[in-house]
């Protein structure tokens, strides 16, 4: 564990907690993409199957359980909670997220380190996580006026990605065999998807204005 990975994990945790808090306390999921949340639930469910097969640390297991629990809770709130579900922007959140799942699965079947069930699913989760934010970014662009919490959620998620890149550079320099092309390229693609959002986020922050994305 290094400081960059810890900072990345903490911003990731904060992003999820901000979103859960928003949904739980103000009973609204306006501006939140259910498609993205479902994709994250799939990402965690396929990546963390190894809690049954390998143990790394209490920290690792605990965080996995938190991410699994929170992502499925958010999906549950948005789909089934009687107040929250009515605030969901169903008409705007039209991204065909299943069209992301299939190509990622095919890619994982073609490009992986080992052809085993767990390894292919783990690789699939990396590819899917890279593109899972797309429905959320499209929804933000469509609704344009973004409340602070939704903006902070995406900002914190982007921060998590940035710290993970620093973590990989650090590990590459300090651990002799740390070379993981699949993880790095998927992670880099994911981080680049946030670049446009970050540009407008900082513009609005600099001008002390409410975040607005161009149509």
């Amino acid at each position: 564990m290094n400081i960059f990975r810890l900072a990345g994990d903490m911003t990731h945790l904060a992003s999820v907690l901000v979103l859960l808090l928003k949904i739980h306390t103000i009973k609204s999921c306006a501006g939140v993409s259910l498609k993205t949340q479902e994709l994250y639930a799939i990402v965690f469910a396929t990546r963390y199957l190894d809690i049954f097969t390998s143990f790394y640390s209490i920290y690792n297991t605990l965080m996995k359980l938190i991410f699994l629990g929170s992502s499925f809770s958010i999906v549950w709130y948005m789909r089934y909670h009687k107040t929250v579900r009515r605030t969901y922007d169903r008409e705007q959140d039209t991204f065909r997220h299943w069209f992301l799942v299939l190509p990622c699965l095919l890619l994982a079947l073609l490009i992986h380190e080992k052809f085993t069930f767990l390894e292919v699913l783990w690789t699939f989760s990396l590819y899917l996580e890279a593109v899972a934010i797309l429905p959320q970014l499209v929804l933000l662009q469509r609704t344009r006026n973004i409340d602070n919490l939704t903006g902070q959620y995406v900002f914190l998620l982007g921060g998590y990605r940035g710290f993970y890149i620093l973590n990989w550079i650090y590990r590459y320099l300090t651990e002799p065999h740390f070379v993981h092309w699949i993880t790095w390229i998927a992670g880099l693609v994911q981080t680049l998807l946030y670049a446009d959002f970050f540009y407008y986020y900082f513009q609005s922050w600099k001008n002390n204005k409410k975040l607005q994305l161009p149509a």
Binding site: R5, D9, H12, D50, S54, Y56, S57, N60, M63, K64, F67, E113, W122, Y164, N167, E175, H177, F178, V179, H180, W181, T183
Partner: peptide
């Protein structure tokens, strides 16, 4: 050669 060390990440 890649080892499984990246799996300790989240």
């Amino acid at each position: 050669v890649a080892r499984d060390d990246v799996k300790d990440e989240l």
